[in-house]
Computed example of a mutant assay.
Amino acid sequence: MSAAFDLYTKLKHTSSDEERAEVIAQAFDALEARFPQLTDLATQGHVREAELRLQKEIKEVEARLQKEIKEVEARLQKDIKEVEARLQKDIKALELQIKEVDARLQERISQLEVSLHQALAAQTRWLIGGLAILGVVLKLADVLIGP
């Protein structure tokens, strides 16, 4: 049964104004218990105001985030440039070390070539000397064995 019909029935069966007032008071109590305070209800204006306030806060947060992102990007770019500079410095140092090692190797190769030429020259002298001695021995043998 609806609350309005129930109130109507109760009012119809009461005879005095005092009973009617009591029935009406009970109906208002039941109504207040059933529904929240009207001041607690959100109106469409309240909802719109809250929505606008939230949109404003969202825009502020987005702006802060954009600013922070730009700051982070700037720091990262700075860090990247510092790392690149260090790497370039390290690369130049390594290139210099490579050139020094290459120069030492070239010098060592030149020394080995000189030593090799000297050894070949000494072996050639020994070979020529050995052939000369062989020629003398053969000449002697020819003379000794003679005709």
Rank of each mutant, 00 (worst) to 15 (best):
V23A: 03
A30Y: 02
V23M: 03
R108S: 05
K12E: 06
S15I: 00
D102N: 13
T9N: 12
G135K: 03
E113L: 10
L31G: 05
L127N: 04
K59Q: 11
E22A: 12
A122K: 02
E100Y: 13
Q88K: 12
A33F: 10
P36R: 01
V47Q: 14
V47P: 06
V83M: 03
M1L: 01
L116C: 00
I128D: 11
F28L: 14
A85C: 13
Q37C: 07
V47L: 15
T9P: 05
T9Y: 06
R108E: 15
E18G: 06
E107V: 13
F5V: 11
A121N: 14
D6V: 08
A50W: 08
Q26D: 13
A132L: 14
A85V: 10
L31F: 13
E57I: 04
Q88C: 00
T14D: 04
A27N: 08
K10V: 00
Q37D: 15
M1C: 02
R108Q: 13
T14L: 09
L94C: 03
A25Y: 12
D142F: 15
S15A: 14
L127K: 06
S2Q: 14
A63K: 11
L76Q: 09
E57Q: 14
E68Q: 08
Q118W: 01
R48A: 15
D17V: 02
L76R: 12
L127M: 00
E73A: 09
E60R: 06
V61S: 09
R64M: 10
L105S: 13
A122G: 03
L7M: 02
L54K: 11
E84I: 03
A119Q: 06
I128G: 09
E71Q: 13
V101A: 13
Q123W: 08
Q26K: 10
E22D: 05
G135Y: 09
V136W: 09
A93K: 02
F28H: 08
Q77T: 00
H117G: 04
R108N: 07
H46L: 06
L127F: 04
E62P: 11
D6H: 00
V136M: 13
H46N: 15
D17F: 02
M1P: 12
V72A: 01
